[in-house]
Amino acid sequence: MSKFLKAAICLALTAGPAWADKYGLGRPALPEEIAAWDKDIRPDGTGLPAGSGDVWTGEEVFADKCAVCHGDFAEGVGNWPKLAGGEGTLADKDPLKTVGSYWPYLSTTWDYVNRSMPFGDAQSLSPDEVYAIVAYILYSNDLVDDDFVLSDETFSDVEMPNADGFIIDDRIATEHSKWVGEPCMEGCKDDVQVTMRAMVLDVTPEEEGDAPEAAAEPAEAVEEVVEVSLDPALVAAGEKVFKKCKSCHQVGEGAKNRAGPILNGIVGQAAGAVEGFKYSKALRAKADEGLIWDEENLRAFLAKPKTFIKGTKMSFAGLRKDEDLEAIAAYLSSFGE
């Protein structure tokens, strides 16, 4: 935040440079304007607003606003940034650089989430939401316990593992001193061999129009005639409830496994049956016991996922309202396999 006041005092005491040749252009910035734009957070936490957020609130906010790109566990979806994991990989062939493994200052996470996230809806989070999200990211990186509350007070308690992992640019000493002077012009090497070819790796973008045929259209989805007639209003209500699930689950034509499995035909299906999806050990155990996702089991699971299957990797707090449970079951029933 602004150090203007401090600066003014400082100037009064030390008599700074004389600004004789000013153009008199522009106008003084108002305190409200500075407050609106000056949001940067310094490594020591300067600039943090008062507020707090705990890990569990953070998990909910994260699932709602961040998981669609960053994954339920901050593990990243597709090419989107992974925010957790990678500890001890920085010297590996392919280091995984995350908030936990790489970022030296916690202020950076707070500042960036606050200023630029969620992607496409920046500056929409309240300070408490930002504290909660950052708390959850720390928890996802095993840097705090699940009862941790991040606030402007506890901010400086957090130690970032890679805080000492940076040095200031030393190229002048380590590179420039070696690579100066008159270079060799003749007989610089005895032998030259091609050791690697880009065309072998073959990752350069194709000329348009020559791209391989797009993957064959998926076989026409066979819409099974659902025997039980569904209440259209209930299905519509379920579609709204499903928004809570969408960051991880897809349903309908062209659905793919995301952080969670495809849900086509889930109602009445055996648990753990979606091909190509990696289920938790806990869910696989239930599947082996013969769990069927009939409406009753599905509703019980969705009401309290972590109670129904202890150890499920579905990080969802659960649907509290009976009407939501009924609606989501109706909505999912409307999709055949």
């Binding site: 790489y102 970022w103 030296p104 040095i167 030393d170 190229r171």
Partner: peptide, 27 residues
């Protein structure tokens, strides 16, 4: 002092073989 923003810590820093990263490699 510097802000140490995302673009100058998590990105635009150069990780060396030993896992230590150079920062402020502006030129």
């Amino acid at each position: 002092g510097p802000v140490e923003s995302r673009e100058e810590t998590s990105k635009y820093t150069d990780t060396l073989a030993d896992g230590i990263s150079r920062k402020w490699t502006w030129v």
